[in-house]
Design a binder for these strands. Structure first.
Length: 638
RNA sequence: GCCGAAGUAGCUCAGCUGGUAGAGCAGCCGCCUUGUAAGCGGCAGGUCAGGGGUUCGAGUCCCCUCUUCGGCUCCA
């Protein structure tokens, strides 16, 4: 007998080898009929698969929300594949899984597809759905499956059968509807009629198994929902997200610029620079509090340096090179070697440790042209970097302090959900196994008492790392900070300090960044806020709008008063209607507009309007600056 | 880098099967003097991404390059 646990916590006893069908039947005949799949410890499986002893299970039906969507989209992917098979005979099939917001299917097609082909494919899918073809599951042993797909010239399926065989599978399942039969684990709907409302979204290239050495397949992205209403709501959400696209807002709000003269190299415009300076100012405040010292190291350094640091071997394809006086130089892709040279610039005593050297380091990395993406993926960016030189026994406290830094700092930008990941030794690693063991153990120890995920093999080439992720207002996760331990570079640069007993000892380095890249952080911030920056970051915090020309002088006086209080204020005295100037203020997302006319001049006040038309009312001039700052502190600024 | 798509005024986009570019917004100049999201009129603005080709003639067709967009891969 095996025991599984149902969602309400009740245990269910079943025969050994019992599957989802049996579990559903044991609960009730109604459920047995409605059952589509079973969620086993978070994984959605076919009902025909035996359940493992001790699992948490939930029977998936059309009422199961996300799990149901998964099954529906998986089936929709098969319908898409069938449609493509009909329209393009000779197509070879890759993978076609459900994903976050929909599903895709990879094909090797006789000709290139474009969006112009979508209507025909969608029409074919609709016909298939209307026919309500049943999806029938069958099982083949590995050898028969290999033969089966080889006979149909489905090389990618053969490849996958081989892969499964290599994993020790003896049988594989297939699903068939109409004339389309696919190697597939399932689960699926009963028939193609249930796939609801669907839409093809885009066509893209994708390497087979994601390996750039493999052939490039054509990937069709699509989505499906039970009803048209839900599909429409999704499409609307996508449109809304587009309006928040930082590339668009960056241009509209005049924050930054990209030019053909420098692909991937951002230009900061005056308003963007204000935000960057505010962000860096906030970081500097914390640096001071935590005993960091700020440095700046050169942009271009000798090739020899990069050879000894290991970057030449491990990072070459991402670096830029140049000649100076017939000597080879490289543009820095990281700041660590520079920081090491600062450490080495004179003898160091144990009394100086931990030596915390911070740098807003502007680094250049040669990224593949196809990956550039606004501020999210650029070829030059500024890291809020720091290198902490310390003794091994100081690592624990230093890492704890970094954790604390991160916890308090992200909140200032409204990111309150922080996920932590520990990444260990990658395949391509510098240094000895013993170094790695010690480094990994030290980080794991510092993380004690904190929730974190393990990310094996994802460390930097010089050491393991802790990464920090936040979730934005649209539910998207972003990697920001990182904290990496390095025994390798101190060795490479032969860094030493003089100990209490007058011996020369080797320090370890903690590399850490809180925001990661200022560029990318700004991009995230733009999309998170939709351009409605918190008051302290807004490039223009207050705009004074005089009702008529005769109020201009007073408006200037109000502006000057606010500036004297340290606020970024302007007046808009253009010969435009007031409605127009208020609208412009809104479009530029100025947090506060102060309207001043006869009444305000008379009473020495201003009528305060917050973004999005929120009326605050009349405030006396002398109170405005304090009032606005106070609102910001309680987070009232939308 | 690879696959696919696109590139027309600062922005958003028209420009049919080749016959020498057009709108709205923004900008500039006037008028209006205004009470919480677009007042009115005028003017100016493009080597149609760049280069080559086909043609009597190319924004439109072909080739190459660049850039951008959507992905793959990679990462801050």
């Amino acid at each position: 007998m095996i025991t599984v646990t149902l969602p309400d916590g009740t245990p269910l006893q079943l025969e050994d080898g019992a599957n989802g069908h049996a579990a559903a039947a044991a609960i009730g005949p109604g459920l047995a009929k409605a059952a589509l799949a079973v969620n086993v410890d978070g994984e959605i499986r076919d009902l025909a698969r035996p359940l493992p002893d001790g699992a948490d299970i939930a029977i998936v039906t059309s009422k199961s929300g996300g799990d149901y969507l998964y099954v529906l989209r998986h089936t929709a992917a098969h319908v898409l594949a069938e449609a493509v098979q009909e329209l393009f005979p000779g197509t070879r099939f890759g993978f076609g899984p459900p994903i976050e917001d929909g599903f895709y299917y990879d094909f090797e097609l006789p000709r290139a597809l474009s969006e112009e082909d979508f209507p025909a494919i969608e029409a074919a899918m609709r016909t298939i759905a209307k026919n309500r073809a049943a999806l029938e599951r069958s099982v083949l042993d590995i050898d028969s499956a290999r033969e089966f797909f080889a006979a149909r010239d489905q090389g990618y399926k053969v490849d996958q059968v081989e892969f499964l065989a290599g994993r020790g599978e003896t049988d594989v399942s297939l699903y068939q509807q109409d004339g389309f039969i696919d190697l597939c684990q399932g689960p699926h709907l009963h028939d193609t009629g249930g796939i609801g409302a669907f839409k093809l979204l885009s066509v893209a290239g994708a390497y087979w198994r994601g390996e750039s050495t493999n052939p490039m397949l054509t990937r069709l992205y699509a989505t499906a929902f039970p009803t048209q209403t839900e599909l429409d709501a999704y499409l609307e959400r996508v449109e809304l997200a587009k309006a928040r696209d930082h590339r668009r807002l960056g241009r509209d709000l005049e924050l930054f610029h990209f030019d053909d003269a420098g692909p991937g190299f951002p230009f900061y415009l005056p308003k963007g620079m204000i935000i960057v300076n505010e962000i860096q100012g906030a970081v500097r405040q914390e640096l001071d509090r935590l005993g960091y010292q700020e440095i700046r190291t050169p942009m271009i350094l000798s090739e020899d340096l990069w050879k000894s640091s290991g970057h030449w071997d491990h990072y070459h394809e991402n670096m830029y090179f140049t000649q100076v006086d017939e000597q080879g130089f490289a543009v820095k892709p990281m700041n660590c070697p520079g920081a090491c040279l600062v450490f080495r610039s004179r003898r160091r005593s144990y009394r100086e440790l931990p030596l915390r050297l911070a740098e807003f380091g502007h680094v250049h990395r040669h990224e593949l042209s196809g990956v550039l993406h606004g501020l999210f993926r650029v070829r030059a960016f500024t890291q809020d970097d720091a290198h902490i030189f310390c003794r091994l026994d100081q690592v624990h406290d230093e890492v704890r302090t970094v954790l604390e830094f991160i916890d308090r700092f992200y909140g200032r930008f409204g990111f309150n959900q922080v996920k932590t990941k520990l990444s260990t030794r990658p395949a391509k690693a510098a240094g000895t196994a013993e170094m790695w063991d010690r480094a990994e153990a030290a980080l794991a120890q510092a993380l004690e008492g904190r929730d974190y995920e393990l990310n094996p093999g994802d460390g930097a080439f010089y050491g393991p790392k802790i990464d920090f992720q936040v979730t934005d207002s649209m539910g998207r996760a972003w990697q920001l900070g990182t904290c990496q331990l390095d025994f390798s570079m101190p060795e490479a640069f032969e860094l030493t300090y003089t100990s209490e007993t007058d011996t020369e000892e080797r320090p370890v380095i903690i590399h850490r960044a809180i925001l990661g890249s200022i560029e990318r952080f700004l991009g995230i911030l733009i999309e998170d806020t939709g351009g409605d920056f918190p008051f302290w970051l807004a490039p223009e915090q207050v705009r004074v709008v005089p009702v008529a020309d005769r109020h201009r002088e007073y408006a200037d006086e109000v502006r000057d008063l606010l500036r004297a209080e340290g606020l970024r204020a302007d007046t808009d005295s253009r010969a435009e209607s007031m409605g127009r100037r208020i609208r412009d203020g809104e479009l530029h997302k100025v947090p506060y507009l102060l309207i001043v006319g006869d009444r305000e001049v008379e009473s020495r006040t201003a009528s305060v309007r917050a973004r999005h038309g929120d009326e605050i009312g009349d405030l006396p001039l002398i109170e405005i600056a304090a009032a606005l700052l106070a609102r910001d502190i309680v987070g009232a600024v939308g």
